[in-house]
Simulated scan of single mutants.
Amino acid sequence: MLDKKEFLQKYRISEQDFEEAKISWEELTAIYENYQSMETTLREIGKDFVDEYLYDIQKAGIHSYRYRTKEPGHLLEKIIRKRRENFQKFDRIDRWNFHKYFTDLIGIRVFFLYREDWIHFHQYITSVFENDPAQYVENRLEDFDEDADHYYIAERPKVYKRAGDSRIYDDQLIEIRSGGIYRSLHYIIKYKGHYVEIQGRTLFEEGWSEIDHDIVYPYFKDDIMLNDFSTLLNRLSGMADEMSSYFRRMKMMRVEEEQEKEHERSV
């Protein structure tokens, strides 16, 4: 049996925060237990996805990948947080339908060496899955497709870009959300009856993000000093991405120069 006091303490949720979520501890416990019973199936679905679509990293246009299922306690914390932030949107969530609300129970990360390489993965993933705006989910309950054999992109692909990023994204292909502190691609795929969330980042961006999530997000978001250090590390990772792009561009220039010299010598 999940202990309420220990849970609230672990995830830094006050009793007032819990009350504001307007959901019983009994219902949360039932969600927790139901999710645990689903985890093995979700892990298998995640493995099937990467084996079928991402194992050939060259074909997928990525450097590497990893996948995971959401930790049960984090699911409950997210339910409480979302109900507090937007109760009307999440007021009907329960032990039977929670998997329809959250698209990140199965999460996959794909990584790029260079930020410009996003386009290769985008072209790949939109070629192997239907990407019809008419099928994008708006109402989590009413729009949920019960057909487990229907695989498709369930939301418009989007990218969160850093403030000051150079223009490398095409808003005809992907929704661009600006002004953030991190850069990340997001795709929601309906696969084998469940949502699969794919996030695409550079290796440098992933390094900062993992450290930020381990130390700051979501329980120390109000700690000024930790946020300052995270912001500094974020800037360094952004600079590393910029330098990597310039580094590759210089190499390509050197290769072109050598090819021109070789051509002149052969004439």
Rank of each mutant, 00 (worst) to 15 (best):
H150Y: 04
R81E: 09
R167V: 14
A163Q: 15
P157N: 05
A148F: 05
G107N: 11
G107T: 10
F90Q: 07
V159S: 10
I188R: 09
Q172N: 15
W118H: 15
I93K: 08
N139F: 03
I108P: 12
D165T: 08
D147Y: 04
Y151C: 08
V110D: 04
L105D: 08
H122F: 13
I125H: 04
R66F: 15
L173K: 12
A163R: 14
E130Y: 07
A154R: 12
H99A: 07
F87C: 05
D149Y: 13
K100Q: 15
L105A: 05
N97D: 08
E138A: 09
R156S: 06
L141P: 03
F144H: 09
F98E: 11
D147V: 12
H120P: 00
Y169M: 11
Y152P: 02
Q135I: 03
A134R: 10
Q123Y: 05
I181D: 01
D170G: 05
V137T: 10
Y169V: 06
G179I: 07
D94F: 00
K70Q: 04
I174P: 13
E71L: 06
L76K: 12
E130L: 13
R68Q: 12
Q88T: 15
T103S: 09
R156P: 02
G179Q: 07
E138L: 15
R68N: 04
H186T: 03
V128K: 10
E155K: 15
D104G: 09
R183Q: 07
H122P: 00
K158Y: 10
L141S: 10
Y182N: 00
F111I: 00
I119V: 15
D132Y: 06
K190V: 01
R140G: 01
E155S: 14
K190M: 11
E71I: 14
L76P: 15
L185W: 01
V137H: 01
R95D: 12
I181L: 00
Y187N: 01
R140L: 02
R83E: 14
I174S: 09
E71K: 13
D171M: 07
R83C: 09
S178T: 13
N139V: 01
E71N: 13
A134F: 10
R92N: 12
H186E: 06
I125Q: 03
F111E: 03
W96F: 14
W96A: 13
D117A: 05
I174G: 09
F121W: 05
R115D: 01
F144E: 02
Y182C: 00
G180E: 10
F144R: 03
P133L: 12
K89G: 02
I93F: 06
E85Y: 09
V110W: 07
L105E: 08
R140K: 10
R81V: 01
Y152R: 09
W96M: 13
I108Q: 07
Q172A: 11
A163P: 00
G179C: 11
Y124R: 08
E155T: 13
I176E: 06
